[in-house]
Design a binder for these strands. Sequence first.
DNA 1: TAGGCCATCTGGTCCT
DNA 2: AGGACCAGATGGCCTA
Length: 271
Amino acid sequence: MDSDTSRVSSRPSSPEVDDIFLSTLKKSVHGFTGAVSSTQSDSPSDTLSLHGLSASDEESLSLRLSKKDRKLLSENEMQAIRLKINSRERKRMHDLNIAMDGLREVMPYAHGPSVRKLSKIATLLLARNYILMLSNSLEEMKRLVSEIYGTSGHHGGFHPSACTTMTHAGPVPGHPVPSHPAHPAVHHPLLPPAVSTASLSAPSISAVTSVRPHHGLLKTPGAGAGPLGSSFQHWGVGTGMPCPCSMCQVPPPHVSSMTTVTMPRLASDSK
DNA sequence: TAGGCCATCTGGTCCT
DNA sequence: AGGACCAGATGGCCTA
């Protein structure tokens, strides 16, 4: 999908659970401390490594219930539980990454042979602005339709091609668009919409500007016309497509209110 | 080499 | 009690 494929493939996000288990077991048994977090060294696996036992030996030994081995059994149980929890957590994070990939797939800017994979934070921020942009476009389209056909009740003749300049046609009622007559060809597409900027938390803004500050959120060959490279151009330039950039978008009231609300737990929402 | 990004482990908290 | 979710810690990989 992108130039980052090698990086991704070289470090699979979700190795087989069995492999993880076996590797962990090997590490425990042989005392291997390669790419393991330091906290793992506190796990019971080190206890096993101290005994210098193989996995099978450990299992068979733990079945013989001497007083000393009873403690060992509990440690094994603890380790088994820990591995189970770790596996669940890996799966959860894997599912999260799958969802993130799905989000990247439907995002603009994220496609192309030389486009670097969007980071997670970039994906979320870009998705947010993209949603705001689409909401604005929808509102604007509704407004234009009502202006053109609203009074006559004639809706049959409407077609999107008549609205190719719609995005820049004018402000959403009640939401004046900041004027930018020069309309620079390159600017930051991930900055929050101007109106909602004030309502954004500082970390959100700093996150946007701090992500890959040198090469931008996307990396394209020859990029460098601006802080984010020449790949960041108004989406609509020469295509008639709406521009998702911050300078062109103003969130509708019901959307901008989202910017001040932290994402609640889904479980809580569903109740 | 520093900084960014990521995967993983881990312990805590909340929910069912 | 078990699972889901979260955040901190840690170490590896990659790029400028």
